[in-house]
């Protein structure tokens, strides 16, 4: 603990002098190195994933992204991300479509409607829902939700609105639709809690002004709250979408590990993250591992773009608000 000795030493002097400035240099230096370390870390992640994917990039090139094939048989090896990209898109977009209206409803309820005694507990509950680990949601999804959907919901949807090709015949509980429901439960609290905080920042005088003009509460929400918080809500949706796209564990358990592109939501499927997660025991060939890392590279690039987009929206909204104030 030489730094502690330096402390007392420097403090005893009337003028701290060189040693104090030396201490400044050390603190600023270590903190600065840590900060540079964060930048290096992110760079290292991109570099490591990109270099791990290189053999697959060489073998399959860009068409890997849309090829619908995953054949690890030696001698006839061929890999492509098409099926998993499709599975990821369907489950994430489906979850976003289901979760957004519910989340906005929850956020409006908590910021505008709820009586005081309900507000605190429900807010805490929604945040608890966000904290449940994905592996627990996946466990619940495969052992509780999937059988219920298989026995009751899927056949009912098929017999009533089966003319839409999305709701084809069902056979397994582990299917794309179960994945959508599981992801909805996971991203709902994210969108809801960010939107709630945004709605609370809407100035009270704007809301009261609108209500004073005689509009109903819904018209006030549509005319004042939504336009004011719109950018932030869009960012919250993007973040929720990014979370759904990157989720691996829960969907790996409930999607049934299928291959191919089909409209039927009651068929099995797989996502990018799920495919990676299920191959963790690493028995495959070098090319298969590299192809899995290629899948991770697609996820990584996508997640970086999504986050930059969300940050851009947030910053633009903040700047606009700053000018207005």
């Amino acid at each position: 603990m030489t730094s502690l000795d330096a402390t007392t030493d420097a403090a005893r002097r009337p003028f701290p002098g060189r040693r104090a400035r030396f201490g400044d240099l050390i603190l600023q230096g270590t903190a600065g190195i840590a900060a540079v370390g964060a930048l290096v870390l992110v760079g290292l992640i991109v570099w490591k994933i990109a270099s791990g994917a290189r053999p697959a990039l060489h073998a399959f090139g860009l068409p890997f992204v849309w090829h619908v094939v995953w054949n690890p048989v030696h001698g006839r090896e061929a890999y492509g991300a098409g099926s998993f990209l499709f599975g990821t898109a369907v489950t994430s977009i489906g979850a976003l479509l289901l979760a957004t209206p519910i989340a906005l409803g929850v956020a409006l309820f908590l910021s505008e409607l709820a009586p005081g005694w309900i507000r605190g507990p429900v807010t805490a509950l929604v945040e608890t829902l966000a904290a449940i680990p994905s592996v627990v949601i996946g466990l619940w999804g495969i052992l509780v939700l999937a059988p219920i959907l298989r026995d009751h919901v899927d056949p009912a949807l098929h017999s009533t609105i089966g003319f839409i090709p999305l709701f084809g015949p069902s056979s397994y509980g582990s299917n794309v639709f179960t994945g959508i429901v599981v992801l909805t439960i996971m991203i709902l609290p994210i969108i809801a809690s960010i939107s709630r905080e945004l709605f609370l920042t809407v100035p009270q005088e704007l809301k009261e002004g609108a209500l004073g003009l005689g509009v109903t509460r819904w018209e006030m929400v549509r005319g004042v709250v939504f336009p004011y918080a719109g950018g932030g809500v869009a960012a919250a949706m993007i973040l929720g979408f990014g979370r759904a796209v990157g989720e691996a564990i829960a969907v790996a358990l409930v999607l049934g590990d299928g291959l191919g592109i089909h409209l039927n939501l009651f068929d099995t499927g797989q996502t990018l993250g799920g495919k990676i997660a299920l191959n963790y025991q690493g028995s495959g060939s070098g090319l298969e591992t590299s192809s899995l890392i290629y899948l991770a590279l697609i996820l990584l690039v996508f997640s970086i773009l999504v986050n930059l987009l969300a940050q851009l929206i947030v910053r633009r909204a903040a700047r606009r608000k700053g000018l207005a104030a």
């Binding site: 964060a38 930048l39 870390l41 992110v42 290292l44 992640i45 490591k48 994933i49 791990g52 973040l239 990014g242 796209v245 990157g246 989720e247 691996a248 564990i249 993250g273 990676i276 997660a277 899995l292 890392i293 991770a296 996820l299 990584l300 997640s303 970086i304 999504v306 986050n307 930059l308 969300a310 940050q311």
Partner: peptide, 17 residues
């Protein structure tokens, strides 16, 4: 911004890294 991006990187990708 870098740390926000890091927070958004899927956990499975970090595992692979």
């Amino acid at each position: 911004l870098t740390l926000d991006v890091l927070a958004g990187v899927p956990a499975i990708v970090i595992g692979f890294f």
